[in-house]
Design a protein around this nucleic acid. Sequence first.
DNA 1: CATGAATGAGTTTTCATTCAT
DNA 2: CATGAATGAAAACTCATTCAT
Lengths: 202, 202, 202, 202
Amino acid sequence: MVERRAASLKQQRSIETREALLSGAARVFSDLSYSGTRLRTIANESGISEGAMYFHFGTKAELANAVLAEQQERMTEVLASMQEEEGDALEKLVLLMNRLAVLISTDRIVQGGIRLAADPNVEITADARDPYFEWIAIAQSLIEEGVRDGSIRADVVPAAAAEYANALFVGAQVLSGLEDGWVSFPSRIDRLTPFLRRELGD
Amino acid sequence: MVERRAASLKQQRSIETREALLSGAARVFSDLSYSGTRLRTIANESGISEGAMYFHFGTKAELANAVLAEQQERMTEVLASMQEEEGDALEKLVLLMNRLAVLISTDRIVQGGIRLAADPNVEITADARDPYFEWIAIAQSLIEEGVRDGSIRADVVPAAAAEYANALFVGAQVLSGLEDGWVSFPSRIDRLTPFLRRELGD
Amino acid sequence: MVERRAASLKQQRSIETREALLSGAARVFSDLSYSGTRLRTIANESGISEGAMYFHFGTKAELANAVLAEQQERMTEVLASMQEEEGDALEKLVLLMNRLAVLISTDRIVQGGIRLAADPNVEITADARDPYFEWIAIAQSLIEEGVRDGSIRADVVPAAAAEYANALFVGAQVLSGLEDGWVSFPSRIDRLTPFLRRELGD
Amino acid sequence: MVERRAASLKQQRSIETREALLSGAARVFSDLSYSGTRLRTIANESGISEGAMYFHFGTKAELANAVLAEQQERMTEVLASMQEEEGDALEKLVLLMNRLAVLISTDRIVQGGIRLAADPNVEITADARDPYFEWIAIAQSLIEEGVRDGSIRADVVPAAAAEYANALFVGAQVLSGLEDGWVSFPSRIDRLTPFLRRELGD
DNA sequence: CATGAATGAGTTTTCATTCAT
DNA sequence: CATGAATGAAAACTCATTCAT
């Protein structure tokens, strides 16, 4: 037991350092562009030495990709959580938008990942936009489900409606990001939800 | 005459260099972030030497700001052009969105300006976002006008409707930017216009 | 003419800088190993800024490879110069060893190249040893020629004799390098030449 | 007893770690230059942690010097072994060259030491070249002995002959090192021995 | 004694800016 | 005005060494 704790503690510090770097990096990346952020800034923000960044992540690009991977995981988690929800499809769609908005407005790693995913930089993993496209696909399948379960009008064209929902969501996200760093994102979504309900609802 | 022509030729050359730099810079800025673009890249893209940039624009930041100023001018031109349009306010709103989408999808300087305006960088003039807010204000005043002229339903709340139109527009812009560098922006707007008409129209 | 001189002068400075860097680098590389030499040291030795090195050579490895390329050229020149010599083959072989020894003992770029070629470093061009093998091949063909022209004994086996001459030459080179930085290389070769003559000569 | 065995085991482990480090270091040093080898590489090669190196050797330079010391010991052992040999001096000289070649071609620590001894680095003990000079001195005294015992011709000048033997030996060593990491060193020496016998022998 | 994470001084490399021609 | 080589401050990255466990 004693030995295991020792080993565990050794690992523990490493894990803490890694997490501190990851979230510090995410905070800085969410405020500045990839090229614009200095590793020194991340080190200061994290309270970790610059050398430690290289021990844990190797290069700036890998650190950014680690933030993106963590963001993807957290967003995928929310998308997956919808599977277990009760209620009709329209309600699920509204709920999903709300949950994503809340996640984005509160989770600094997700915010960092969003900025990085939008950053035009060859060093950053190209599939960083996967969650976006996944979200679109899920929106469309929910709309199709809604047409079947009667919560969405029969004359709605799923592909067009999904594009519409997507544009609203992304527009709100970008505007709240510019306005106040996503703080207002959930309330923006709330204000736009009635438009979505009227267009899709029965 | 000879001297004047010589002077004129010199001026001519200077103007051409300036324009080549401005549009080359805009092209590069629209593909990379501000920090991510190298002046050497702009020089190569423009076919102009690096040193010449300093004669015409002083610094990288001033070059970026010149792109932004030119973008503002071109967008403001479109906004201003609406004054002269006939037709009811709803039609004008739809037309305005279409014109802006066409401008953004075709004008590389405007594209460069859009990326720069979204770039989180202290060196870039803060009021780069003015046209955004101007567009919102114009959208709102058009909606108010529409309520008065009967082209927009009386129960529409102008502020909320303006936020809605804005979100749709910005969402379409961002998505088309990611998808294909704004080529599909006008067609996206066309596909979203029916949703706007239904929500606002009489 | 004035314009050409201006252009030429512009180039001239660039050429001078490049040469200063190349020979400064060669001097430092010949005193320290590849990994052991600091670019700062080369910059100081050359009287050129560190940034200029990157303008001209891009990276440390490319600078080292440029030194090697220059060394190869100079050694190949000596090898080629043998074509035009009169005399029997044994005299030519002795003359070649002497010329190479003089070149190595006096040319700092060649000295730098020798150290680099012996440096086990993946970043350094693998074919850096080409001149060595070329020298061996030339030695062997001279010995074959000597057997034919009667200056070398008929019972000499060319391959074995070439290996012998090569070992003597390389041994003298290494020992004089350790002893005094190749200053004594030509005199060492002079002291060893009688042994070579006795073994090969008629 | 228990305590003594524990202590003994501890010591045993310590000795094994030290030896693993020493031979791992020698292998890496023989493949890369002193500055070019990373302590991490040695640690991986040895299967020992990086931290352990500091317990056993203090610094990188001391580790390198430990390899050199071990090499000196092993080479001195061979030199000393000649004292006990029977036969005339020329045979002893040939035998010595052969034994050294075999040692160098098979002993990785000796190989590491050879590379280190040739490495131009201030951190490495200056007297690393002692065995070289010792070997030269022994060669010369054997030649003098050979002149006396009649196995070497009377007209041979010992100093010149020693320089000759030395150049042949070093040349063969360097060439076999470049060719295949010293594997062919003994056979090279065998091929060169006839040249030595002819020049010195009666 | 052993481990491997952490540190920070030192090294290579980048790039906006300057300047001689 | 235009060019492109040169500069130097700042950035990314390396690695010997230390140290907590």
